[in-house]
């Protein structure tokens, strides 16, 4: 959990201002952008404008924003099917993300990937992977390239608690440890493997952290709803990776406010659990944090308004955007741009 240092203490009145106002405002804006865009995605789904499946990160914004704000340009994000938050956190536009969810031609991948596969390499978002665990070894490979070429970027791989019980998780952890790769594994423990409490299906109480020792790694558990805690943890892990000291495995405790996917009303949750976690809503925590640091209500209100404007504008742009044309069906199967498998 958060260390004493992470609990905000006022300077003069003991506040720890190691992060600085500019970064704090960016972190607030980032979390709010995710919140508003995810909520909008849900609303658009109810209007049948977002189709297919979607897995929202409502309630988990602090993990995405804390890590993304600690990343440098060139650092790489590897996400899961619950990847909207991490994509937005790397500054991909709301329009591109909503466009993809709304299956429009202005979407990030013009409708060819969909909600579960958001990718924006120019922003360092190296894909969202919908097969549990698949991207942990892939992140190892990107980190291997950095190590081999002497590049200083770090590969950051986000996944849920359910991923810790699949083989690829364990293969990747061992692999990253023995090769001392500059990769950071981030388990977002939201307490549920899809519809099942993670504790019901896991041999240890902390699905990621309790496995760290098996791979010679430090046991790290943090408050994933406090973006400052996440940010500081990320910085430490990135420094370690850039210094050639190898991988880190971080378990961030958080909670998703919605169901697993759009089809899930999350009726399996015990009475009062959601309400308890909403008291620890990352946006609420962070708004109070800004106020503690003396950020005026006016500045906060301006950020709120500009984020809502961005999401509203993106929504209208996407609603007006055309559907993808048939001629992209057969493009980019192979590197020559086409799909020819014979002469």
């Amino acid at each position: 959990m958060a260390t004493a240092q992470d609990r905000a203490q006022a300077p003069g009145s003991g506040l720890n201002d190691d992060i600085g106002e500019a970064k704090r405002l960016a972190m607030y804006r980032s979390q709010l952008r995710i919140r508003e865009a995810e909520q909008r995605a849900y609303d658009l789904f109810l209007q049948n404008l977002v189709k297919g499946t979607s897995h929202l990160s409502l309630g988990q914004e602090a993990v995405a924003s804390g890590f993304a704000e600690a990343m440098q340009k060139g650092d790489l994000s590897f996400c899961t099917y619950r990847g909207h938050a991490h994509t937005l956190a790397r500054c991909v536009s709301v329009e591109k993300v909503l466009g993809e969810l709304m299956q429009r031609d202005n979407g990030l991948m013009r409708g060819k990937g969909g909600s579960m596969h958001l990718t924006s390499e120019e922003h360092g978002v190296m894909g969202s992977y919908a097969i549990i665990g698949a991207h942990l070894p892939i992140a190892c490979g990107a980190a291997w390239r950095a190590q081999y070429k002497g590049d200083k970027d770090v590969s950051v791989c986000f996944f849920g608690d359910g991923t810790t019980n699949i083989g690829a998780f364990h293969e990747a952890l061992n692999f990253a440890a023995i090769w001392k790769l500059p990769v950071v594994f981030v388990c977002e423990n939201n307490l549920y493997m899809e519809y099942t409490p993670i504790g019901d299906v896991t041999a240890v109480p902390h699905p990621a952290a309790d496995r760290a020792g098996s791979y010679g790694l430090e046991r790290i558990i943090i408050d994933g709803n406090d973006a400052d805690v996440v940010y500081r943890t990320a910085q430490r892990a990135f420094s370690r990776a850039r210094a050639g000291e190898g991988p880190s495995l971080i378990e961030a405790l958080t909670y998703r406010h919605s169901g697993h996917s759009r089809a899930d009303p999350a009726k399996y949750r015990p009475e009062g659990e959601l309400e308890k976690w909403k008291q620890r809503d990352p946006i609420k925590i962070y708004r109070e944090r800004l106020q503690q640091f003396g950020v005026s209500d006016k500045v906060i209100a301006e950020i709120d308004a500009s984020v809502r404007q961005e999401v509203d504008d993106a929504t209208e742009t996407c609603k007006a955007a055309p559907m993808p044309p048939a001629d992209i069906l057969t493009t980019d199967v192979y590197a020559d741009g086409g799909w020819a498998w014979r002469n």
């Binding site: 490979g141 390239r145 950095a146 293969e171 061992n174 692999f175």
Partner: peptide, 27 residues
């Protein structure tokens, strides 16, 4: 550095090859 033994981890082998290929190597 260029010819590397791996554990018996076929998913790690192919996943690592893919991550390296995506980012500039030819594994």
């Amino acid at each position: 550095l260029r010819v590397r033994d791996t554990p018996i981890s076929e998913q790690a082998i192919l996943g690592a090859a893919m991550g390296a290929a995506m980012t500039g190597l030819k594994p």
